[in-house]
Nucleic acid binder design. Structure first.
Length: 573
RNA sequence: CGGGGCGUAGCGCAGCCCGGUAGCGCGCCUGCUUUGGGAGCAGGAUGUCGGAGGUUCAAAUCCUCUCGCCCCGACCA
């Protein structure tokens, strides 16, 4: 492809709208342009990368027997009402009406549509298993779209759905999908990790997220450096520690003045102690308006997902200051369990191991010291209600957990029969008995994968594409304007293409510096500089983008050299 | 939805506090010179100052409303 024939509007300066590196580089290299918040056009260069990722996904989906379909973007409200997600999905589901005022939505995911397809067409166990997938644009009206393709409102996603006769078969399918995901992300050249994930409200038995490791990731994961254990902090179970410190015998409860000290840090400073000697009391309101209190050690973070799961609800909000005042007769920052009545008190395991700790006194500017559970107040339920953090014990070895940031690029779910039950997706077994199909669903964010690849592969000059997803393999840069350079360039261009190598030829009348800078920005793995200086020695210069330095090579050897290099990284040809 | 910020030429920004001529850099067009890491000189084009209302002799600038965008938080099958 010739640059003069390809629409690659590169930007010399950083666009003001972009904060994270992948977003900036995608805009600057002319891969994407914004149309509205969280909505982007893919320009030729960006689309080429998207297509490469899609192709890898296709190959691996097909390899495990999944079949490609294309489901509609627009789907009727009735399907969503059947599963109650029409109401449940909330504002994230973008809705519209047709000319007859019938309700529709733009699909944020396709369980309903695909389950409907299944129940209409599949009758017998003989037709199972079946796994369908599509690569298609989804729409979710995110509260806050950000980071370019990382969290858009409209985005390209591969979603797959499996239907099996029973749990065991479904589990096999899940495993096959899990392995396919490993191959996909390995092939895209990314450093990633599969982690145990929360199954969320979708329920089900198993769920793993595929995280590309990057400091800019939105997700926090914990992992065990000595075993294979890794999990999203939302999900990671915290192993209760035995009461290790010598148990200090209970001291008399004492109320102390802590003026203005509302936060854990402030209280600690004032009382000259450390956060692990303090217990914070978090007040929440639930959907049925019954408040609850959750006790968490001062240096720990509450995990609302775990609390919700325990309570069997899906909506938990931290009580507002008015509500706190009603419950505790004190302003926020001084809530405590002592004398708190009429609501359930949950406590994290870690709280149970403490004695003589500090709590709020339910009175402005006052705290208690030497509080002890059982003597001073009653805990209704003890459980795992906090977020895992670095230094916690691994559930699988003696090691301490470490944390890392990740970008969620893929998610696999065992759905069970949640959707098949609600929508009546059944089949008849060999005995003629009717059963609900057991389902799994599996997503990959295509655009997000591209963004993650850039987060992981760039320097201060631009992108450094992994070979399998690079928009072009070789970027030809004729850098002086002689007849000789022109001839060699044309010959190489033809020869490389002949060898099935994807070449971008910068045939613009630009100065060398401009071409070099654009080439580094666009990030093709190989840059080839053709100039009179080199040709005088009978050579051209080859620069591998990830290495950086140029090395002279005879023009006649270029194609073979590049082919050999590519062969190491890609299934080639 | 809460908090913060920004909308001025294609892009990046200044000007706004303190009302009076719309500016800078990059890009773009023409010509000459240059030509291996974002060239130099000369000439040139480009703006409903996000939109609507108001105050004023006069509004990019002050006031009110509104739309869009960015950042932090809450949210995220």
């Amino acid at each position: 492809m010739r640059t003069t024939h390809m629409f690659i509007p590169t930007l010399r300066e950083d666009p003001g709208e972009a904060e994270v590196i992948s977003h900036r580089l995608m805009l600057r290299s002319g891969m994407i342009r914004k149309v509205a918040a969280g909505i982007y056009s893919y320009l030729p260069l960006g689309l080429r990368v998207i297509r490469k990722v899609e192709q890898i996904i296709r190959e691996e989906m097909n390899r495990i027997g999944a079949q490609e379909v294309l489901l509609p973007v627009l789907s009727p409200a009735e399907l969503w009402q059947e599963t109650e997600r029409w109401d449940f999905y909330g504002k994230e589901l973008i809705r519209c009406q047709d000319r007859h005022d019938r309700d529709f939505c733009l699909g944020p995911t396709h369980e309903e549509v695909v389950t409907d397809l299944f129940r209409r067409e599949v009758r017998s166990y003989r037709q199972l298993p079946v796994t369908l997938y599509q690569i298609q644009t989804k729409f979710r009206d995110e509260i806050r779209p950000r980071f370019g393709l990382m969290r858009g409102r409209e985005f390209i996603m591969k979603d797959a759905y499996s239907f099996d006769q029973n749990e065991g078969e479904a589990q096999k399918n899940y495993q096959a999908m899990y392995e396919a995901y490993h191959r996909i992300f390995t092939r895209t050249g990314l450093q990633f990790r599969a982690v145990e994930a929360d199954t969320g409200l979708i329920g089900g038995t198993s769920s793993h997220e595929f995280m590309v490791l990057a400091n800019t990731g939105e997700e926090l994961i914990v992992f065990d450096p000595e075993s294979s254990y890794a999990a999203n902090v939302e999900r990671a179970e915290v192993v209760p520690v035995e009461r290790s410190q010598s148990i200090t015998s209970p001291q008399p409860l004492k109320k102390v003045s802590t003026p203005q000290a509302k936060t854990v840090t402030e209280v600690c400073q004032l009382l000259n102690t450390t956060p692990d000697r303090l217990v914070k009391t978090l007040l929440y309101t639930t959907p049925d308006n019954s408040p609850i209190a959750v006790l968490i050690r001062g240096d720990h973070q509450a995990n609302e997902i775990k609390i919700q799961r325990h309570l069997g609800i899906h909506d938990l909000t931290l009580a507002d200051s008015e509500c706190v005042r009603t419950l505790t007769n004190a302003p926020t920052g001084f809530a405590g369990p002592i004398g708190l009545h009429g609501l359930t008190i949950l406590a994290d395991h870690a709280v149970g191991t403490l004695s003589n700790f500090i709590v709020g006194a339910n009175e402005a500017d006052m705290h208690y010291i030497n509080a002890n559970a059982g003597r001073d107040f009653t805990i209704d339920v003890t459980g795992d209600f906090r977020q895992a953090q670095a230094g916690d014990s691994s559930p699988q070895s003696q090691a301490k957990l470490e944390t890392a940031r990740g970008i969620e690029v893929g998610h696999v779910f065992m759905l069970g029969t949640k959707y098949s039950e609600k929508m009546g997706a059944t089949y008849l077994d060999s005995q003629g008995a009717e059963h609900n199909a057991v389902m799994g669903c599996y997503g990959i964010g295509v655009g997000r994968t591209v963004a993650a690849a850039i987060e992981q592969n760039h320097d201060d000059r631009g992108i450094m594409w992994p070979i399998p997803i690079a928009p072009f393999h070789v970027h030809l840069l004729p850098v002086t304007n002689s007849e000789r350079v022109h001839e060699v360039t044309q010959a190489l261009y033809a020869e490389l293409q002949q060898a099935n190598i994807e070449v971008l030829l910068d045939d613009r009348e630009e100065r060398a510096g401009v071409k070099f800078n654009d080439a580094d920005l666009i990030g093709s793995p190989f840059q080839v500089v053709i100039g009179d200086k080199g040709l005088a020695q009978g050579t051209i210069d080859l620069k591998e983008r990830i290495r950086g330095e140029k090395m002279p090579i005879a023009p006649s050897k270029l194609t073979a050299y590049v082919r050999e290099k590519l062969a190491r990284d890609v299934n080639w040809p």
